[in-house]
């Protein structure tokens, strides 16, 4: 659900209006070797691909995001710039940043790719445990059917 609320900073007369995305979830790890801007980009991308973030959903401003995540504006700016380059988000001057209208084909491809990646992990893990292709296929078919219900 996308809610809209007015946020009045406790010490300034300017009221900052933004659409608050309840669902958007970003967790930053300082211990990770992955740069922070990449962590942000990856997580937002994943949420767009999974459909948690939908076309036209507003994203917090770079300053708002930097404040919330306790990171540099430069970092959030870089993360947004990368996402924009890849076509995931659009920045409309003066209005804010939104999840871009996704190319349906492309999005599907991207989502397919993520399914492929997960399956590839599964295969790697299965091979480590000496699970045969047939056993794996069986497991998959059971899971596929049970998920339907």
């Amino acid at each position: 659900m996308t809610v809209s609320l007015t946020f009045e900073t406790s010490s300034f007369s300017i009221a900052i209006q933004y659409r608050y995305l309840e669902r958007m979830k970003i967790i930053i790890s300082n211990a990770s070797s992955e740069p922070i801007y990449e962590q942000i980009g990856r997580q937002i991308k994943a949420q767009i691909i999974s459909g948690e973030l939908k076309e036209g959903d507003g994203l917090p401003s770079i300053r708002k995001l930097a404040k919330e995540l306790h990171i540099s504006v430069i970092t959030t700016k870089r993360a947004y710039e990368e996402l924009e380059k890849e076509g995931f988000i659009d920045t409309v001057g003066g209005k804010g940043t939104f999840v871009a209208i996704q190319n349906k084909e492309l999005l599907r491809e991207k989502r397919m790719k993520s399914v492929e990646d997960m399956m590839s992990d599964t295969v790697t893990e299965a091979k480590k445990l000496d699970i045969s292709y047939d056993e794996l296929r069986e497991m998959l078919s059971i899971l596929y059917d049970s998920n339907d219900e």
Binding site: T9, S11, I14, R63, A66, K67, H70, V73
Partner: peptide, 10 residues
């Protein structure tokens, strides 16, 4: 936190 709030304007 106050600094962060101050910096909400670019």
């Amino acid at each position: 936190e106050f600094f962060r709030e101050f910096m909400q304007r670019e």
